[in-house]
Design a protein around this nucleic acid. Structure first.
Length: 217
DNA sequence: GGCTGATCATAA
DNA sequence: TTATGATCAGCC
């Protein structure tokens, strides 16, 4: 299967997966026998959509689209936050518009995965941040990148940021990587990444109205 | 129950 | 070893 060449085709394929169970998709698209590990569903959906799995960059470079599967609880709300990208070694002094998180979030195909006894693909949708989202994300970026530069990676907790946060992303708590600290001094730190807060993902899903029952009054 | 910090598997 | 795909565990 060739990669989709348009958003329309990508979305069409994704909608074709709606209602399919993860077990069903595994029969034809699983690559390993070790089904059920943490990144399994994400990789499985990528292959089911005909995406080539690459090392770095967007999932669909020709369209600049990132694919995210998102686990949904029975009430229609996301169960987890969403990984965006690693905290970059360089580029923390960039503005939001040139930042790594912004390029990852510019265009995203969200694929909900519901749990109703089995895990089942829901109705996918394409998303870009609204103007309001952009403004708040830019503000988060300024705060978080500033903290990472001035306080060092070890002192930035997940409490900062309204829509986006910084959390550890490592093999274990003893992992270290070379980070660039204050005044550009090299230092070792626990690897960290940017994530979208769960409540922000919930608001994205709620705006689409396609991911399950809405809890509004 | 939600959130933060910790962790797991795989490919390149 | 790093990046990508995320979910797990347990404190609050």
């Amino acid at each position: 299967m060739l990669e989709p060449t348009s958003e329309r085709e990508l979305l069409s394929r994704a909608h074709g997966l709606a209602g399919r169970t993860i077990d069903e998709l595994s029969l034809t698209h699983a690559r390993t026998s070790r089904a059920g590990h943490k990144g399994f569903v994400g990789s499985l959906v990528e292959r089911a959509l005909g995406l080539v799995q690459r090392g770095a960059g967007p999932d669909l470079p020709s369209l600049g689209i990132e694919l995210k599967t998102i686990p949904i609880a029975t009430d229609g709300r996301p169960r987890e936050s969403t990984f965006v990208c690693m905290v970059p070694r360089d580029g923390l002094d960039h503005g939001w518009s040139e930042s790594a998180p912004r390029s990852k979030l510019a265009r995203v195909l969200f694929v909900p995965v519901e749990r109703d006894g089995q895990r089942r693909v829901g109705m996918a949708f394409l998303w870009s941040p609204s103007e309001g989202d952009e403004a708040t994300l830019a503000s988060d970026w300024t705060e978080l990148a500033g903290l990472l530069r001035t306080h060092g990676h070890e002192h930035v907790s997940a409490h900062h940021g309204q829509l986006m946060q910084v959390r550890p992303k490592a093999r274990n708590a003893a992992s270290r990587w070379r980070a660039t600290g204050d005044d550009d001094a090299p230092m070792l730190a626990l690897p960290r990444a940017f994530y979208l807060r769960r409540r922000f993902v919930a608001s994205i899903l709620s705006r689409t109205g396609m991911a399950g029952p809405r809890v509004e009054t």
